[in-house]
């Protein structure tokens, strides 16, 4: 699971049957340098490419969410839909204390 900030939503007019009525969030993922610390998501977009994730938790614009990618994203369904990213957590607070990196000598 990775963390990211919800920066938008997508509505689809034509979609495969298993995904009808689904909710899609555009998420800007947090790399190491731009990770939330504390209760407030960091401003701005990160360098990493954004992605669209299936949303089952009701993530709102500007929220920090944890999203799972890969085969496991299609796991919480009776019939596995063709998705590879799903929101799995709405983040409240992050305690982030990265070990300082000394530049390569």
């Amino acid at each position: 699971m990775r963390l990211g900030r919800v920066i938008g939503r997508v509505t689809l007019s034509v979609v495969v049957p298993q995904l009808e009525g689904a909710r899609w969030l555009i998420i800007s993922p947090y790399p190491r340098e731009h990770l939330q610390n504390g209760p407030v998501p960091p401003e701005g977009l990160s360098a990493d490419p954004s992605l669209v994730a299936y949303d089952s938790l009701g993530g709102g614009l500007g929220d920090s969410v944890g999203f799972v990618e890969g085969r496991e994203a299609a796991q919480p369904f009776d019939v596995a839909p063709p998705i590879d990213a799903i929101t799995a957590a709405l983040v409240d607070t992050v305690y982030y204390n990265p070990k300082p990196v000394t530049p390569a000598s």
């Binding site: 938790l57 957590a89 709405l90 409240d92 607070t93 992050v94 305690y95």
Partner: peptide
């Protein structure tokens, strides 16, 4: 390097 809390989750 850290941990997080999330009340609303799977």
């Amino acid at each position: 390097e850290g941990s997080l809390t999330a009340t609303r989750k799977h």
